[in-house]
Design a binder for these strands. Structure first.
Lengths: 145, 145
DNA sequence: TCAAATCAGTACCATTTTGGTCTGGTATCG
DNA sequence: CGATACCAGACCAAAATGGTACTGATTTGA
């Protein structure tokens, strides 16, 4: 079915949740609640996203996560690569020497061409583009504490 | 990492092998030999490709397979769809109502956008384009650099 | 008409990937 | 010091994937 893994999909949702509160440090529990995902799952996602340098973490009481840089400077491609590694539609798009047909393979060039179109599309979408347009105004749910 | 299944990759190889002999009916054994793949695997591929109407089969002695239409009229997208079903990068790109977030999901639109770019790229490559350059003059070669 | 060649369909199994949970550890704040 | 909250890793169950085997149906040709 040619799709990204479910975790990658979740990662985009989690990232938009964090991006919707640019000023705050959100705990994993808050993010899980907002994204409607299980807490351990969100925890694992954030760990991976942190390793990739897309979010930064703060430990201890009142700790949590925050975007590592502005939402305009984070692309969908970076999120996908953080979760799944280098983008490649076939084995041989990513690394050389995977199959012995490589030298005389007619198919490989076409796949690489499709691949570059895809990664271009992923690079062209930023996290800011994925936010609801309304978020420039007041969010629908003001933090009732 | 965001790739088509290995069988889909094999399917493109098998299709180019068949396309390289436009006049002949090739047996599964011949195709397997030429593609350097196992015979039962090729058999399964061809059955699926046949159901999708991309190749036609002939039974009995001297039977085998042949392209159902000209190589220029078969796109990479059709091969992928034959093997993997509708092209969609996320669950919700393909069908509605998969997740309860759908109504207010900010992420979905961006995925659908990426998706349409990808399927456009797959549609733009024909089986004829994937053959060795001998018999085909590639119309446009967008310089990928 | 019989036998060989060849595709058709189904069922099955082994491996890998994926998604998710749990446990213990460490840092920070009050 | 202790409560909170992130960190790291192992671990497990379920699903998808790739491959194999077996049986049946159809056509050709001797």
């Amino acid at each position: 079915m040619l799709r990204v893994s479910r975790l990658t999909d979740y990662a985009t949702v989690v990232m938009t949740c964090i991006a919707a509160h640019p000023a705050d440090v959100l705990s994993t529990a808050q993010i899980a609640d907002e994204a409607h995902l299980e807490l351990p799952t969100v925890s694992k996602l954030l760990k991976t996203l942190g390793h990739a340098g897309l979010v930064e973490s703060f430990r201890g009481v009142n700790g949590g996560y925050r975007l590592a840089r502005d939402a305009h400077d984070i692309s969908l491609a970076q999120i996908v690569e953080a979760m799944e590694g280098p983008i490649g539609m076939t084995e041989c798009s990513v690394a050389e020497g995977q199959c012995e047909r490589e030298a005389r393979c007619n198919v490989r060039g076409s796949w690489r061409q499709v691949n570059s179109v895809l990664s271009g599309a992923l690079r062209s979408v930023s996290l800011a583009d994925m936010l609801p347009a309304a978020s420039v105004a007041v969010p629908e749910r003001p933090a009732a504490s």
